[in-house]
Design a binder for these strands. Structure first.
Lengths: 242, 242
DNA sequence: GGTGAAACGGAGCAAAGAACTCCCTTTCCC
DNA sequence: GGGAAAGGGAGTTCTTTGCTCCGTTTCACC
């Protein structure tokens, strides 16, 4: 988790407010002693929320998360106010990770490395994290998320333009193709993740060979296609996802 | 609709059974006169089911379909027994269309034309039809559908092998890559279909340039990327899909 | 240790959605 | 015109989900 830590071995003092519980525990201007069960449950809940969100995404219920954390539902509601608030926190956390990743990629000196680090990096982050995939697909109408999104786009544009200027892109490729390509790798993970977690690499490699300049040599494909039984398993698992 | 027609201007006789209502109207060995309101409603329901399934897929309720057909729910249940039966009929219909298409593609003499007709053809069929996409993704545990699926696969293998023998495929490409590629174009339609119904072609072109032999010239990309506002609309529409 | 305020927990509630049925009314064929 | 079959839609049952109520437990402070 990259969110504020409230692990507290000693009884700690409550900061102004904790992102998720805004307006709930805040009582007085004066600092207050926080009970250690509160701190413990907060940490448990944050960890559980992160895990559950990773594997079930926004469909998870607060009941799920509470059970996962080993606490009662009411405790979850005492910490998160409602499901929207929790979702917003998780979404924000995920988007910030993406932002961070992109800034790192943008900082690489070589335009091609920068471009590939960007595309591979984001695809990798979302591949094992259903919540991350959902963040990339929609902002769920959460303002804070849209706000971070605003900061993401210029970086993407800069990376793509730098790659184009270096002559490594197929000329028709546009910045808006990137979200669609990432959407496709995410779809691969939705479908085949359970049977072959890295399968997205195969298809991203394939697509990159169509996206990069024709003069560049083809890349080697590192991940094998699904075999027959994997394909059938993926297909059978699918309809439980609705 | 490619399903049995029961349009009947004259009062007709009931055949052994109609696929969907199997075991419901069948009474005696002797033929029986069918009332014209029954025939009319049957036709209305089939048409409505097809339409609704095309745009909402398996999520549609029988209530939806009945309303769409302008009849009461009970009438729908008199014709279809239950939702499973209707779904099975629609799925079967869709898969048969795919089978037909593939046989046509297989019959083309040129291996490359055959391969491209196959991939483009299936992608096109599913692009404007959510029900079709669902059929391709899972058999929903319906036996009849699995049965047709068994007949589809050898044709796909034959087309791909013929293309490979003709040297037009990238050597690493396998038959099992095809469902994944079609899954990806379907995902594009899921996301962007409402704002740009043909966008899948752009990404299929891109992928084909990575899937075909390196020696072949790149294809021209016929469909433009989404512009900013289309991308935003697609993103905003998405979360209603869940 | 005792105490009271705060936190806990889980049964339970309300709302929504979906599949399907009951039963009164209407339509049709003879 | 009669009676059997079909129609229609309000209503029933079942499930899911988001959230709360309230009796019980925990903890910080004394």
């Amino acid at each position: 988790m990259s969110t504020d830590q409230v692990v507290a071995g000693e009884t700690a003092t409550v900061p102004g407010d904790v992102a998720y519980a805004a307006g709930m525990t805040a009582t007085d201007p004066a600092s207050r002693v926080v009970r250690k069960d509160v701190a413990r449950n907060q940490a448990l809940l944050l960890a559980a929320a992160d895990e559950v969100f990773t594997e079930r995404g926004a469909d998870a219920t607060l009941d799920d998360i509470a059970r996962h954390a080993g606490v009662g539902v009411a405790t979850a509601y005492r910490h998160f106010e409602n499901k929207q608030a929790l979702l917003a926190a998780m979404f924000e956390d995920r988007l910030n990770k993406i932002l961070q990743m992109m800034e790192d990629a943008d900082a690489l000196p070589d335009p091609r490395e920068s471009f590939e680090a960007f595309v591979y990096g984001v695809a990798a982050m979302q591949s094992h994290d259903r919540g991350m995939r959902e963040v990339m697909r929609t902002d769920h109408g959460i303002d804070k998320v849209s706000a971070i999104r605003q900061r993401v786009q210029p970086i993407a544009i800069r990376i793509v333009e730098r790659a184009r200027a270096a002559g490594i892109l197929r000329p028709e490729l546009e910045t808006n193709d990137i979200p669609m390509v990432l959407w496709m790798t995410g779809a691969i993970s939705d479908y085949a993740g359970p049977v072959s977690p890295d399968l997205w690499r195969r298809y991203l490699d394939l697509m990159l060979d169509g996206m990069l300049a024709e003069s560049l040599p083809r890349r080697t494909i590192s991940v094998p296609a699904l075999d027959q039984s994997q394909l059938e398993t993926a297909m059978h698992n699918w309809h439980s996802h609705r």
